[in-house]
Computed example of a mutant assay.
Amino acid sequence: MSPDTWSAILDGFERDIALAVSGGIVPPWTPPMDAGPLPAALADRARRVLDAQADAVAILKRARHDAGTQLGAIDAVPSGAALARPLLLDVRG
């Protein structure tokens, strides 16, 4: 395949990375069956894309962890019948 094909593949990876990090839904990826070997001229760009993917995974893992922590805090707040009575009593006022 031509370098243009690989450039388009790398462009797609970069779009998907940006979409994922911005909170968008990334469409499923289907590997191209006829891309052939990566041209040597695009090796540095491919490494940068790979590094960006690793950074995106780390960002998304942190976001998932933070969301889980927040959900845990929300779950710890009493609800239902417990809210029928005051949770705090002002003894100074």
Rank of each mutant, 00 (worst) to 15 (best):
A56W: 05
A40N: 08
F13Q: 02
K61N: 02
P37W: 01
G36C: 04
R45S: 01
D34F: 07
D4H: 03
L60E: 03
R45D: 01
L71G: 03
D16A: 15
V21T: 13
I59A: 12
L19R: 10
P32Q: 13
D34S: 08
A73V: 06
R62H: 11
L10W: 00
A41W: 04
H65A: 12
H65V: 12
P39S: 02
R47K: 15
R47L: 12
G80M: 08
L42A: 01
L19V: 09
I17M: 07
L42K: 00
P32L: 14
A73K: 05
P3N: 10
S22C: 02
A56D: 10
Q70D: 05
G24I: 06
L42S: 00
P37H: 01
P3M: 08
P37M: 01
S7Q: 06
P37K: 01
T69Y: 04
F13C: 09
D75R: 14
A8T: 06
D51V: 07
D75E: 06
T69N: 04
T5Q: 05
W29M: 14
S79T: 14
L60D: 04
L83S: 10
F13H: 10
A52T: 10
T5G: 02
A67K: 09
W29H: 14
D11I: 00
L42W: 00
D51G: 09
I59W: 08
R45Q: 04
H65S: 11
V49Q: 01
R64A: 13
R62M: 13
S2T: 07
G68R: 03
G36S: 06
D44H: 11
G12W: 00
A18P: 05
Q70M: 09
Q70R: 10
Q70G: 06
Q53H: 08
I25C: 03
S7F: 01
I9E: 00
A41M: 11
D55E: 14
L38V: 02
A56T: 12
D4R: 07
S2W: 03
S2M: 08
A56G: 15
D4K: 08
W6M: 01
A58R: 14
G72P: 01
A76C: 06
G68H: 06
I59N: 09
